[in-house]
């Protein structure tokens, strides 16, 4: 393989496309973590995921690209937007989105990037593969999943079920024991005595569809 490796620079056309998409993804990701508007962050996340889906397409992984668009862009981001809405986050500019240890975080992040990039470049500077379409088609992947990976797939479905139940239990408010202090009545509830965690009743009483709409509905659909 090393004999026909072309030079790293100038990049080929595919690589140029991929790099452009990568730049878009990185830029929008940067905006996600730096923007002062919560909703904008979610929207920049859409851009980032979209660019990544494009990158998957360039890398011949079509099915993954579509799943990416469907689940990430279609489900997860919407879920996050619901979360933003339900937590009554301020729409528009808000100053307090960054915590105090931003400098430390930046340092650690830059360090992580430096280490990772250094290792990756040193390890894979000469790695090259010609792109051949078809490797990531739905048929191929489906065959692989339901042939080789069927057991993990089933396990994953159980995991999804557990996540669904957990989300229902966590978000429902009407299945707690009668405890007036438990429901958040006060504005910031600073004086509420620290009540111990409520022993939850046996979960999954089946009626969590309405109250647990945020998590369960989506997840169940995605899992299918």
């Amino acid at each position: 393989m090393t004999s026909q490796v072309p030079d790293l620079w100038p990049p080929s056309a595919q690589e140029v496309v991929f790099l452009l998409l990568g730049v878009v993804a990185l830029g929008s990701a940067l905006l996600v973590v730096t923007t002062r508007q919560l909703v904008h962050a979610a929207l920049w996340l859409v851009v980032c995921f979209g660019a990544l889906a494009g990158g998957y397409l360039v890398l011949t992984a079509e099915f993954v690209a579509w799943v990416q668009v469907l689940i990430y862009v279609g489900a997860i981001v919407v879920l996050l937007l619901f979360g933003i809405m339900l937590t009554r986050a301020p729409i528009g500019r808000s100053a307090g989105l960054d915590s105090g240890n931003r400098v430390t975080a930046a340092t650690v992040a830059v360090g992580t990037a430096a280490v990772l990039v250094t290792v990756v470049v040193q390890g894979f500077a000469t790695a090259y593969t010609p792109l051949e379409p078809g490797g990531g088609a739905a048929a191929t992947l489906g065959a692989s999943i339901f042939r080789s990976w069927v057991l993990p797939f089933e396990a994953l479905s159980v995991l999804l079920l557990a996540a669904l139940i957990g989300a229902i239990v966590l978000s429902r408010t009407d299945i707690r024991p009668a405890n007036p202090a438990a429901d958040a009545g006060g504005p910031a509830a600073p004086t509420t005595p620290p009540h111990p965690p409520d022993p939850a009743p046996p979960p999954a009483d089946g009626s969590g569809a309405t109250a647990g709409e945020t998590g369960s509905g989506r997840v169940s659909r995605d899992g299918g």
């Binding site: 915590s99 240890n101 430390t104 975080a105 340092t107 650690v108 360090g111 280490v115 290792v119």
Partner: peptide
């Protein structure tokens, strides 16, 4: 009690260990 700070410490430690190993 700031979990973010803890995670920062953990990651910084991991980084330092990785660099040291390399």
């Amino acid at each position: 009690g700031n979990a973010q700070l803890y995670v920062t410490g953990v990651l910084a430690g991991v980084l330092l260990i990785a660099v040291a190993v390399v």
